[in-house]
Amino acid sequence: MRDEKPSGIFKALNLFSKAGPRFDEAWSTLSFIGCTRWRWDETNDHKWYEVDGHGRYSGIAPDWGKFYELIGHDPIRDAVPWETIRADTANSRHFLYYFRDETLEFMAEEWSFIPSPTV
């Protein structure tokens, strides 16, 4: 495999603006509409910040711990195994969500964030 980096850009997606002012006090649901594939791996904050960058997007994505959409050419997207639901569509988009202890990735047409009114 060539050591090629994505030429696309990472767009930070703001969950908080969709949640409203009481986000920190509520459970919420993050959904991926038209999801074609997903993956969950153990890229955590330690792997992200290692000098040799064990995470695929270490040193490329702007910040750790954020929700991103990768837009544009990404030659390393398929360098790892995915759980496939069906073939990607022309409208499939690449979403990444970095948690403290793992990373979730989705290929989906859209995302939705709905805060729950109760804890």
Rank of each mutant, 00 (worst) to 15 (best):
R2H: 11
R2Q: 12
D3Q: 13
P6N: 11
P6A: 11
S7E: 13
S7G: 11
G8D: 10
I9C: 06
A12N: 09
N14Q: 01
F16D: 09
F16P: 00
S17N: 13
K18E: 15
A19S: 15
G20I: 06
F23P: 00
E25R: 13
A26E: 02
W27M: 06
W27Q: 05
W27K: 06
T29L: 03
L30G: 04
L30K: 04
L30V: 09
S31Y: 00
S31G: 00
I33T: 07
G34K: 03
C35L: 10
T36V: 08
R37L: 02
R37N: 04
W38Q: 05
W40P: 00
W40E: 10
W40C: 06
D41V: 06
D41P: 07
E42I: 08
E42F: 10
T43H: 12
T43W: 10
N44I: 03
D45N: 02
D45T: 05
H46P: 00
K47F: 10
W48Q: 04
W48P: 00
W48T: 03
Y49G: 07
Y49V: 03
Y49Q: 07
E50F: 04
E50G: 04
V51S: 09
D52V: 11
G53C: 06
H54T: 09
G55M: 10
G55C: 15
G55Q: 10
G55R: 06
G59D: 08
I60V: 15
I60G: 10
A61L: 12
A61G: 08
A61T: 06
P62C: 08
D63Q: 06
D63M: 02
K66Q: 12
K66R: 12
F67R: 03
E69Y: 08
E69P: 08
I71R: 14
G72C: 15
H73D: 15
D74M: 14
D74S: 14
P75H: 14
I76Q: 13
R77A: 15
A79H: 15
V80D: 05
V80G: 00
P81C: 11
P81R: 11
I85W: 02
I85S: 02
A87N: 15
D88L: 03
T89W: 03
T89F: 04
A90P: 08
N91F: 02
S92Q: 01
H94T: 02
F95N: 02
F95S: 05
L96W: 03
L96V: 04
L96K: 01
Y97M: 07
Y97F: 13
Y98H: 06
F99S: 00
R100P: 00
T103V: 07
T103K: 05
L104A: 01
L104F: 04
F106P: 03
F106Q: 07
M107Y: 07
E110A: 14
W111T: 06
W111K: 03
W111Y: 15
W111S: 07
W111Q: 08
S112G: 01
S112V: 01
F113N: 00
F113I: 00
I114E: 13
P115Y: 10
P115C: 12
S116G: 15
V119T: 13
V119K: 14
V119D: 14
